[in-house]
Computed example of a mutant assay.
Amino acid sequence: MVTHWIRFRTAAGMEGFGTLADAAVTPFEGDMFGTATPAGPALPLGDVTLLAPVRPRHFIGLWNNFHELAAKQGNAIPETPLWFLKAPGSIIGPGEAIRPPAGYAGKTLYEGELGLVIGQRIANAEENEAAAAIFGLTCVNDVTALDILTADPSFPQWARAKSPDSFGPIGPCIATGLDWRELRVQVALNGRIRQDYPCADMILPPARIVALISREVTLQPGDVIACGTSVGALPMRPGMEVSVSIPGIGSLVNSFSP
């Protein structure tokens, strides 16, 4: 059974979390990643604002993790995750605007990705433990300031290029009960599909990603790992609407508003 977990804000400014089904939000109390119980009557989806479904301690992204893109770019196939950190403060939710840093006029890329949400503390794990530690899946737009990344030929600035405020859209929910192998990531700009690739093309699958990263970084409930992107990541133009969609999870829609 697939369950969609969300975070939300009411018109009165109260924030909470719960599940979404049939355009109705069931509020919960407790801990999304621990003991959570229903609390109060259901709310119409139209009466709340969806927030980023998680506020992670670690927000990790992968590079070169899809066979098709590696073949196109001539990259070697990695045996371990090639990962970087995005600042947790970069995270925004559905409907919020992506805004480049003040004074930056270079290329800003969208990168639609499958996100793994960790549900329990995990360190130095084997793959079976890592698989059990994945709470659910979400959509991620790993926005990148390309001209910052490549500005200094002696030092690629991964964290700086990927961590500006608003460069980490996540959502609209965390879906549990899905098989990642059956999913596809689609990204549309103003309704025109620009990325469309299968998650099954991953070089390192989710359980292996989590296991290997956990041997270097202790992962905590709510941490997010973006599994990397495939072909079709391009710059956005001002005023564009970018939508990252994964069937079973939903569509993460944000505008690009320099």
Rank of each mutant, 00 (worst) to 15 (best):
C173M: 08
L234F: 06
G46Y: 11
A52P: 12
H67R: 08
S163G: 06
P258Q: 10
F8G: 00
Q120C: 15
Y197R: 06
N65P: 11
T80Q: 05
C173T: 14
P206S: 08
S243N: 05
I249R: 09
F84R: 08
M32L: 15
N124V: 00
R184V: 13
D147F: 08
I213W: 01
I203V: 10
A211C: 07
A52L: 14
R208D: 10
T19G: 12
P238Y: 10
A24I: 12
V231C: 07
W180D: 09
R160Q: 13
E111R: 06
Y110Q: 03
E113M: 04
G16Y: 05
N254H: 02
Q195G: 03
P81M: 13
P156E: 08
L146H: 08
G13Y: 00
I134F: 03
M1V: 13
Q157W: 11
L85D: 00
F155V: 12
A70K: 04
S255P: 14
F33I: 07
I77D: 09
P88F: 03
T37M: 15
A207W: 07
S154C: 03
I213A: 02
T80G: 00
A97T: 05
R215A: 11
P78T: 00
A226M: 10
V187C: 12
A105N: 07
D147E: 14
E216F: 11
P44L: 03
P81G: 00
N190K: 07
A161V: 11
V187M: 14
P94W: 06
R7T: 14
M32S: 01
R121Y: 01
E182I: 01
T138Q: 05
V143R: 02
E241V: 14
D223S: 11
A102F: 10
P38Q: 08
G89S: 15
V244N: 03
I98P: 01
I91P: 01
P156C: 04
E126M: 13
K107I: 01
R194P: 11
T80C: 01
P206A: 11
A12I: 02
P172W: 10
G74I: 12
E15S: 14
V187D: 07
I91A: 02
F59I: 12
T35H: 08
G191R: 06
P44C: 07
G222I: 00
G89V: 08
S255W: 09
P164M: 11
A161W: 04
T176H: 02
G250V: 10
V117N: 00
R237N: 08
S255G: 12
I225S: 00
L137K: 01
R57Q: 15
K107H: 05
